[in-house]
Design a protein around this nucleic acid. Structure first.
Lengths: 242, 242
DNA sequence: CGCGAGCTTGATGCCGATCAATGCATGTGG
DNA sequence: CCACATGCATTGATCGGCATCAAGCTCGCG
């Protein structure tokens, strides 16, 4: 006997009832204003691990808010070398790169089974003309993305391997903490190679650095499960030239 | 006998009569729309070489459009290490980093005597609610800044010294060319150290790489005067892993 | 003319890349 | 259930590119 499909897509999404609304686009909007957003953010999309949400060169129509799961974005050079430009978790927006040229300028790939809310960009623009608060929060999100990228440039341009990895872990745990997860433990959704690409290191260097931090008693590393045994020591590693 | 001051500040600025309007915020706006911008972009400010336009932590009120001259932006770590995050020339916007947190997140420093137009941000927000085209162009500018930053991350994360310098020179000459300057010659407004900071290299490496490109017959380097003798060879350097 | 900031060049060393082998977890088919 | 394959992670040995340290050099300027 056949089984009825469990999920139908597109599914209705509702910002007003979403528990991510304090971390996502609606942050700071009133109940009524979020209601207006509901009209616009009406569908969602599920992806399985490895799926691309969009690719470089795809026409840009929508932004995406991560609902569940985990993504990476990366840019690729003609010769195949690529650079992971960010990791995105629930509440974070994907697709801002596409606004400038009407085409996406990077690939967005699900690192685990994930779902996103689709935010049609033209409708977002229209609603932003009505709701000054929405315009404001959207500008803030883009600005923070620029500031974040500058932080990564600082990391890539002037930090050493150990520092980079420490800064990376602290950044991840902080973001996970504001989503209700532990500050002391995390499960990495990305491979050593993807971490390395993000941090400008080779996967062997990432692995060795993990091992060193473990033997220093700062971390406990079991494959992708990380425990932070000594958070202060980890923080002490960043901003130390030697 | 005393001489009357030649320039009074603040001076009136007018987008509608500005020859940078095709490279700057007004790009794509109609004559009438640019007229509306004139009401808002009313003052300019002159800086001498070495002056800061704003510093990390300063309250954010305005964006700035470079009118003449040349700037760098940089972020600094507590221990003093810093990273140049960009170089800005005429028509380019400064200050987008401040929107997210109401405080500037980097320093902007004039690398030569320069002038900027002051764009009060609150008024820009208000006008964006009226002029959908202005909102659109502003979003595009922010998005392109994000894409640009991703390009720098790619450069810092996965290119070799020679490639980085080649990419940097090609980027500069392209931007200068669209401002009417030569594609083959340029005068660097920044020191070797500032180039190095931007590219994640030490100043000695920058200097050596310039020398190598010169002895390869690709460049002619006389201090800060650069001639590109073989543009194709220079382009050939980027995107070549070895 | 002499000073100093910025640039070039050389000698040396180290961090992270590369190459290579092994280990470990997961999955698949016999 | 085991044998084997596969993908990812760890670890070791070696190499190389860039950093570091240290002189000189150039040019503008008082």
């Amino acid at each position: 006997m056949s089984i009825a499909p469990i999920r139908l897509e597109p599914l209705k999404a509702h910002c007003s009832s979403c528990n991510l609304r304090e971390l996502c686009l609606p942050v700071g909007l009133s109940h009524d204003q979020i209601g207006r957003l509901d009209e616009l953010v009406s569908t969602r999309k599920s992806l399985t691990r490895g799926d691309s949400l969009f690719r470089t060169g795809d026409e840009f129509h929508s932004l995406y808010a991560v609902r569940t799961g985990f993504f990476k974005t990366c840019v690729t050079l003609e010769d195949g070398r690529d650079q992971v430009t960010g990791f995105q978790m629930s509440g974070e927006l994907l697709g801002l790169d596409g606004i400038g040229s009407s085409r996406h300028a990077c690939d967005a790939v699900a690192l685990e089974d994930s779902s996103v809310c689709i935010i049609p960009y033209q409708q977002l623009e229209s609603l932003s003309l009505e709701l000054v608060e929405l315009q404001r929060v959207f500008h803030k999100i883009m600005s923070r993305e620029i500031v974040r990228d500058h932080g990564v440039m600082l990391l890539l341009g002037s930090m050493r391997a150990e520092e980079r990895l420490a800064a990376f872990l602290l950044n991840l745990t902080q973001r996970l903490h504001s989503r209700g997860f532990s500050q002391r433990a995390l499960i990495l959704r990305m491979s050593r190679e993807e971490i390395g690409s993000y941090l400008g290191l080779k996967l062997e260097t990432v692995s060795r650095t993990f091992s060193r931090l473990q033997s220093d008693g700062i971390l406990e590393v079991k494959q992708r499960e990380i425990k932070i045994l000594d958070p202060d020591a980890l923080k002490g590693l960043v901003n130390n030239p030697c």
